[in-house]
Nucleic acid binder design. Structure first.
Lengths: 163, 163
DNA sequence: ACGTTATAGTTACATATGAAACCAATAGCA
DNA sequence: TGCTATTGGTTTCATATGTAACTATAACGT
């Protein structure tokens, strides 16, 4: 009797997820699309990855950080930072020396070449961000900021702790 | 003269990005944190990845899809789908046969075991989503939905086209 | 029918990412 | 001091992911 074949018994009894309305899914799509779009610009042009760019961005703001501090500020794990740094130093964009008082720590900073690249990429990144934001009106933009603040803050408390 | 050493000449001349206020960065953190938190639940318990779960979710809603159609509905690329399916079929959670009229196409669906698992995971996923959303008040939730709709819609138009 | 082009899906290769093991140096403390 | 626990950082290994190449089948135009 109950055998129409195609939709068998789905929806009703099983309450399947509707992916397109599922928050984590939507966030993930949006995040990837946007990061992708923005990164595309410099990825090819400078042969640099998103993680490497993030490292450069914090070093632009804070001279002399250690790898650990970079990891904290980028929310990347230390392995990722280590690898990014290896490439950046190799490429001559970041300088690395050893801390005087603690020889485990490295002391990091942008080189001249690093600064040059930074000064070209940063405005590009900001411009792309503006393009995305331009799709929202002023009120929506305010709400978005507020909502992200709130969710990120909440997750920070919940989500375990280390990194 | 201009050599105080530490903050060298940053901020002023170079206008570095403030990562913690940069939209793509914030989205990426949030998306990862949330997906991670939700996935954690079933990852370990069922030994299944996010991509595999997404495939199962669409097959729960639409019986008999082809791999291509799954790819479209999950925004995954066909290689990722192919791999996810290989594992799912192997694990006995998804059944795969060949389309009668077009022997290139596969015809996919959840097996009994697949349904059983689905019926356990789907409510969990929804519960986790609610937990996240609970951090926002009703008004914020409405805005979030609206903003995501708008941005996703906009990106869909812009962002190239294939997949 | 026949050759060309397009489509569904898989495989191969190269690169990225995460977890755990590991080395070196420092901090704590008996 | 001397021993143990911690911390900064790198290396290793296993797994994941993306791109391009490839196979099989179907669609199209003549």
């Amino acid at each position: 009797m109950t055998s129409k074949r195609k939709p068998a018994h789905p929806t009703a009894e099983h309450a399947p997820l509707q992916l397109e309305h599922f928050l984590p899914y939507r966030l993930s799509i949006l995040s990837n699309t946007i990061s992708q779009a923005i990164a595309e610009d410099y990825q090819r042009r400078y042969d640099i990855s998103v993680t490497e760019w993030r490292v450069m961005a914090v070093l632009a703001r804070f001279e002399g950080l250690s790898a650990r501090q970079v990891a904290d500020r980028t929310a990347m794990d230390k392995v990722a930072v280590s690898r990014a740094l290896a490439r950046l130093v190799e490429a001559g964009r970041v300088s690395r020396s050893t801390h005087d008082d603690d020889k485990r720590r490295s002391v990091l900073g942008l080189t001249e070449a690093g600064w040059t690249m930074h000064d070209e990429v940063a405005p590009m990144a900001r411009a792309r961000e503006r393009e995305v934001l331009a799709k929202l009106d002023a009120e929506e933009q305010r709400w978005l900021t507020r909502i992200l603040d709130k969710l990120l803050e909440a997750e920070r408390e919940t989500g375990s702790g280390e990194r």
